[in-house]
Nucleic acid binder design. Structure first.
Length: 256
DNA sequence: ATGACTGAGCATCTCAGA
């Protein structure tokens, strides 16, 4: 099985990029974040003609997640279980496909909205940890993937790109990411490339792509039995060099 | 010294992204 995650920064601006990428790579599942539209405006028909069925959870202007699949699936949750009922931010889809639970997340950035915005990020991460612990306790094969908005270690961002006060690297964010790892999940990319510069995002500003001043914030986490089947895991840097690209590239994982 | 974005929206600025 081949699965990818990709923050597209507006599906309406990136529809042709996604279409071309699906034709080239042909993954079984593609998890999208920041579709930036309501579910009814998601271009599902475009992807259906390529053999992919779609589920989208969206809202106007911000956030939004979707899953494209060419294998049968069943949607289990349209929001992160445990969050307040009135939380309307479109950041989570959980489904079952290929005998595994697939969780697609767009984790809050945490840099806007002051301390309240950062507190929301941390609460969201606490809630995610509860959810993943429940899946692992039940021995459910699970993949937790998406835009985590966390650089797990200092090796996961280019020197000088972020101040220590940034929500992507603050100790509180990293501690919660580590809790996910310590609970038994495997970071697929780092399992195969334990050290060195691996990035999934390059800012549009200041020539970040040209200087390779990137961040590694898009992750694929695997439950133990799926981690044993890990064959490949790598960001597709090619996409960042395309015309009018997203600031994130796809991360592709292959399981035997 | 360096370089100076992108997308959405009740829009021609503001907010968010990271």
């Amino acid at each position: 099985m081949r699965l990818a995650t990709w923050n597209v920064n507006s599906i309406r601006q990136r529809e042709r990029h996604v279409r071309r990428w699906l034709e080239r790579v042909q993954p079984d599942l593609l998890l999208l974040q920041e579709i930036k539209c309501e579910a009814g405006n998601f271009p599902a028909e475009t992807f259906r003609t390529l053999g992919y069925e779609t589920v989208a959870v969206g809202q106007k202007a911000y956030n939004g997640v979707a899953v494209l699949s060419r294998v049968p699936f069943a949607v289990h949750h349209h929001a992160l279980p445990g969050l307040p009922e009135d939380d309307a931010q479109a950041r989570y889809i959980e489904l079952e496909a290929g005998g595994a639970t697939i969780v697609n997340i767009y984790l809050p950035n945490g840099n806007s909205g002051g301390e309240a915005g950062f507190a929301y990020k941390l609460a969201w991460m606490d809630c995610l940890a509860e959810r993943t612990a429940a899946l692992l306790d039940a021995d459910t094969p699970a993949i937790i993937a998406g835009d985590f908005n966390v650089c797990p270690t200092d090796e996961d961002f280019a020197p000088g790109t972020l101040p220590a006060t940034d929500a992507l690297v603050r100790p509180e964010s990293r501690a919660r990411y580590r809790r996910l790892i310590w609970s038994g999940l495997t970071d697929a990319v780092r399992a195969l490339q334990p050290a060195g510069r691996v990035y999934t995002f390059w800012d549009y500003q200041a020539g970040a792509w040209r200087r390779n001043a990137g961040l590694r914030i898009d992750h694929v986490l695997l439950s133990p039995t799926l981690a044993e089947r890990l064959v490949a895991a790598e960001p597709d840097r090619h996409e960042r060099g395309e015309d009018q690209p997203s600031d994130h590239v796809p991360v592709l994982v292959e399981l035997s």
